[in-house]
C-alpha cells in the first residue's frame, strides 16, 4: 500500500481522445492533472499515472449562437477577465466567482474543469455555473455525453463521472438581451468568508440569476454552496420568486425558502445553524443586487 505521492509516470496526451484512451486503459491508476492546485495539496498516494490535460485544446472561451462554451482547461484567471463573460449581466457572475476563488497565484493555474471535478461542496465556479443553468460535456470511451450540472454533483468529492470519462466543456445557455423590450435579466454572486477580505473557501456562497419583465419576476435560479454535501439549485427559492414583484418580503421569503433546503454541517469555518441563517441573508442580498442590476 503506497502512502506517499510518487506517481511513476507523467503523460502529456495531445488530444482529448488520447487522454480518454489512456484513462480507459488504466482507470484505477490514472489521475488527471491540469492546474494541479488541488491535486498537489491532496497529493493522492494512489495516483500512479498523471495525465496532463492542460494541453488538449480545451483552453478556449467561445460565445456562439446562444451558448457560452468554456473549455475545461480555461483558467480561473482567464474566466475572471474574459470579455464575453464580463459584458453580459448574467454571465458576469462567473467572473465574480472566479475573482473570489483562492489567491491570484492559484487563479492563474486552477481551471474550471478542476474546480467542478473535485466535487467540493463549496466550489465557487460550480455555484455560479449552476445559477446559469450550465451543462457539462463529458468525453469518455463511448464518445461525448451532456449532462445538466444539477445532475453532476453526487456527494462530497464525488461526481457523476464514470470510469474513463473527463469533463471537456462547460456550456452555459445565453439568452439574447433585447434592450427594446421590458424584459431584463441579471445575476449576482455572493461569498461569505471568515474574514471578508481574506482568501478562504466559502463559509456560504450563493449565486442567482433573475429574469424581470414588466416589474414581475418571470424566472429565477438560486444556487447554494457549502451548505450541503453538494452545491445545488434551490427549487423552493425559485418557486417563491416566480410570478411575483421583487418586493422586500418576496426576496426575504425566497431567502428563507432557500435556507430551509440547506443541509449544512458544522466545521472549522462555521456552525450548521450559522450557515443556515447566512444562507437566508446572502440569498436575499444576492437577489436585491440582481434586481438592482436588472434595473440599472
Amino acid at each position: 500500500m503506497r502512502t506517499t505521492f510518487r506517481p511513476a509516470a507523467y503523460l502529456r496526451p495531445g488530444s482529448v481522445e488520447e487522454a480518454v484512451r489512456i484513462l480507459t486503459e488504466e482507470p484505477e491508476r490514472c489521475r488527471l492533472i491540469a492546474g494541479g492546485t488541488d491535486l498537489l495539496v491532496q497529493k493522492p498516494a494512489e495516483a500512479e499515472i498523471l495525465v496532463d490535460v492542460a494541453g488538449l485544446g480545451l483552453g478556449k472561451i467561445a460565445l456562439t449562437d446562444g451558448h457560452l462554451r468554456v473549455g475545461a482547461a480555461v483558467t480561473v484567471a482567464e474566466l475572471e477577465r474574459a470579455e464575453p463573460v464580463l459584458r453580459h449581466p448574467c454571465l458576469t457572475i462567473l467572473a465574480e466567482a472566479a475573482g473570489m476563488l483562492g489567491t491570484p497565484g492559484v487563479r492563474n493555474r486552477a481551471t474550471i474543469g478542476g474546480n467542478l471535478c473535485n466535487g467540493s461542496p463549496a466550489a465557487d465556479l460550480a455555484v455560479a455555473a449552476l445559477a446559469l443553468g450550465a451543462d457539462v460535456e463529458i468525453t469518455g470511451p463511448h464518445g461525448v455525453r451532456r449532462m445538466p450540472l444539477t445532475d453532476f454533483f453526487r456527494d462530497v468529492n464525488l461526481t457523476a463521472l464514470e470510469s474513463g470519462e473527463m469533463v471537456s466543456v462547460v456550456e452555459v445557455p445565453v439568452e439574447p438581451l433585447d434592450p427594446t423590450t421590458a424584459a431584463r435579466a441579471a445575476g449576482a454572486f455572493f461569498k461569505l468568508r471568515r474574514h471578508q477580505s481574506s482568501v478562504d473557501i466559502a463559509t456560504v456562497n450563493v449565486a442567482t440569476v433573475l429574469y424581470l419583465d414588466g416589474g414581475v419576476i418571470t424566472d429565477a435560479r438560486v444556487a447554494l454552496g457549502a451548505v450541503a454535501e453538494v452545491p445545488f439549485v434551490s427549487e423552493a427559492a425559485a418557486a417563491a420568486l416566480a410570478g411575483h414583484e421583487p418586493l422586500d418580503e418576496v426576496l426575504r421569503a425566497a431567502g428563507a425558502a432557500a435556507a430551509a433546503e440547506t443541509r449544512p454541517i458544522s466545521d472549522i469555518r462555521a456552525s450548521a445553524e450559522y450557515r443556515r441563517e447566512m444562507t437566508a441573508v446572502l440569498v436575499r442580498r444576492a437577489l436585491e443586487e440582481a434586481v438592482r442590476r436588472c434595473r440599472a
Binding site: 492533472i33 492546474g35 494541479g36 498537489l40 498523471l50 496532463d52 489567491t103 492559484v106 492563474n108 493555474r109
Partner: peptide, 11 residues
Amino acid sequence: AVLSCLMLAVQ
C-alpha cells in the same frame, strides 16, 4: 505569477 509549490516541474 504562479505558485511553484503547486506545480510539478514537468508541467
